[in-house]
Design a protein around this nucleic acid. Sequence first.
DNA 1: AATACATGGACAAATACTTGACATGAGATC
DNA 2: GATCTCATGTCAAGTATTTGTCCATGTATT
Lengths: 336, 336
Amino acid sequence: MSITPPSSSEPRHPIGVVARRTGLKPDLIRAWERRYGAVAPGRTETRRRFYSDEDIERLLLLRRVVNTGRGISQVAGLSNPELAALIEAEPAPAAYAQPSPAAPEEVDQVAEACLNRCLSAAQRLDVGEMELELDRASVLFSRTHLIERVLVPLMRRIGELWHQGALRPIHEHMASSVVRSFLGGMSGAGHPELSAPHLVVTTPARQRHELGALLAAATAAGEGWQVTYLGPDLPPEEIAAAALQKRARAVGLSITYPPDDPMLVDDLRRLRRLLGPHTLLLVGGRACSAYSAVLQEIGALRLEDLAALRRELHELRTRTPGNFDNIVDNILTDDR
Amino acid sequence: MSITPPSSSEPRHPIGVVARRTGLKPDLIRAWERRYGAVAPGRTETRRRFYSDEDIERLLLLRRVVNTGRGISQVAGLSNPELAALIEAEPAPAAYAQPSPAAPEEVDQVAEACLNRCLSAAQRLDVGEMELELDRASVLFSRTHLIERVLVPLMRRIGELWHQGALRPIHEHMASSVVRSFLGGMSGAGHPELSAPHLVVTTPARQRHELGALLAAATAAGEGWQVTYLGPDLPPEEIAAAALQKRARAVGLSITYPPDDPMLVDDLRRLRRLLGPHTLLLVGGRACSAYSAVLQEIGALRLEDLAALRRELHELRTRTPGNFDNIVDNILTDDR
DNA sequence: AATACATGGACAAATACTTGACATGAGATC
DNA sequence: GATCTCATGTCAAGTATTTGTCCATGTATT
C-alpha cells in the first residue's frame, strides 16, 4: 500500500465531494468561508474552489465543535489542534457494562437450556426467535464454548430427530440455514492482530455442505487467525487463487459427504500442486477419513474434530514457519 | 489487480466493445479523449481506435472516480494507481451523526461510493471489510434503497466483471457469499406487526441460487410482512409443510437457472395441490418467464423484478383476504 | 446496403459561484 | 415581559463553467 504520498495539501476536491464527505451543505461551507474565513480553499482559473485533505479535516473538526453548541464565529479562527482540544474537552458518553463471566459449572446447564430453546424455535420454524437465541448465546459464551457446547450439539440433535422422523427435512434445513448465516456473521467479526497468519477456509468442488467449514472458520477466528471464508463448492484453481492472493499460511477444507469421489482425489492433488509446497493443508469433516490415502500423499493434515483443529491452529501460530516447510517438503519429496 | 497475467497491452478492442464493457457511451469515451486526453488508444491505418485491456481497465477506474463526484477534467490526467487510490480513499459518508434523510439526488452518489468500496473489498477478498461496508450501508439507506441501489447493482457489476475476466470466479463467489449472509441477517430483523400476513420464501428443488430468494425475503420484510426464509433447494412437500405450519398467506419462489426443467413443472403443480387453493404463489427470478405456462395454470403470480414484487406485496397487504381466494378459486376451477 | 466508426459542432443538464435576502432563535436591551 | 439585535443556517436568482449527449456529415467495414 502506498504511504499516501498524495495526501499532500494541494487542493484537489470540488465542493460537492467535500460536502458529501463532511455532511455540510455546499451553501454552508461557502457561508463559513465568506463570513468567517473558516477555510481558505484554493481556486482554479475559473474561480472554482478546490479543497485539500487538510481543509476537509478542518471542516470535520469545525462541524463537531459546532455540534457541541459553540458558535461558528467563535471557533472559525482557531487552528486545527485547538479545535481538536475543544472536542477532547467535551465529556464522552457513558460506557457500557459488560456481562459477568458465567461460573464454570453453570455453563453446561445454561448451554443446555439455550440449546432447548433453539430446538423449539426450530420446531416452530421461528427463524427470528432462533437467531435471537443464538445472539444471546454469543454474548454468554466464549466462541469455543458456543461452537462446541451449543452449535455442534444442536445440529447433531436436530439431525437425530430428523432421522427419527420427529422433525421434517424442512426443520433441519431451516435450522442449518440459520446456523450457517449466524456463523457467517461470526467468523469475520474478530479483531485479529495484523501479524496473525492467514487461513483460507472452504469446501472442495461438489461439497455443498458448508456447516463444517463455517464451524472451522469460526474456530480459527477464535484462535486469533485471520480467516477468509470463501463459501462452499470451489474448484482447486479458485481455492489456490484465493490462497495466493491472501498469502495464506494454510488452507482449511471440509469434506462431508460422498466417501468415494475420484474427482475429489484429483482435485486435492491439483490443489496441492497449485498451492506449492509452502502452504499447509488442513482437512476435516465427516468423510475425510475416507480420503486418508490422498491426504497423506499430498501432505495434508487430517483433523478429526474441531478440538483437534483448535489444538493444531494454536500450535501452528506459535511455531516458526520454517518448520512445516520442512515437513511438507519431506512428504512431497517422498512422493516424487 | 487482475489475477490474469495475459492482460496484454496490445490494442485490440474497437470502441463499441469498449463501450459495452465499461458502460460508457462511445461518444463519451471519445469526448474524454478529445477534451482531456483521458485515454490514448491505438489507431489503425484508417484512424479507427483500438483499445487495450489496460485502456479498458483505466476507463472503468475513471468511471468509478467520476461517479463519486469528481470532474473528469480533474482526474483525466492521473495514473491508474492514483485513480485507484482516490477510490480507496473515498471514505464512508460522515452522515452518521445527523439523521439527515439524505437528499434524494445524493442517494445515488452515496450508493455509488458504497458500491465502489464493496467492489474493491471483493477484489481484495476482504470479507470483513465488505461486511462492514454493508453494515454501514444498512444504516444509511432504507431497506428498499439498500437492495435496489446497492446490492442488486453490486452483484450485477461483479457478474459483469467476472464475465469479462476482470474478476475470478472466486471473487464472485465470495461476494455473493457475503451478500447472502448479510441478507440472511436482514430479512429476520424486522419488527412486523403480529397481524401482518405471513410469507414463506424459498427456491424449488434443484434451484440452488438463493440470492434472488433472499432479496425477495428482505423486500417482503421491508413491506411489513412476516417472512420465513427457508433456504434454497426444497421439494414441494417441504415447502408446503412449512407454509401450512406458518399459516402463510403466500409462498414466494425464485427460479433462476435451467429454463427447461420438466421436474420443476411437476413440482410446481404438486406444490399447488399440497398448498390448497387459498395460498397465493408468487414466483420470480431470471428463468421464471420460461415457465409462464405452468405458472398460469396453477394460478401463480409472475413478478418481473423486485419492484414489481414490492408493489404486489403492498397491494396484497391492503386488500382483504377474501379477494384472492376468489381469484385463485376461479383460476383453479377453470383448470379442472 | 447496412452497420460501425470518426470528426467537429451544438446543445442541454449538472454543477458552481456570487449576491442578497429571509427565517429562526438566543441574548441583550428597554 | 416585550422588543431589538445579531448570529447563523437556508434559499433564490442570475451567471458561468463543465460535462454528457446528440447530430450531421463523411468514411470504413461487413
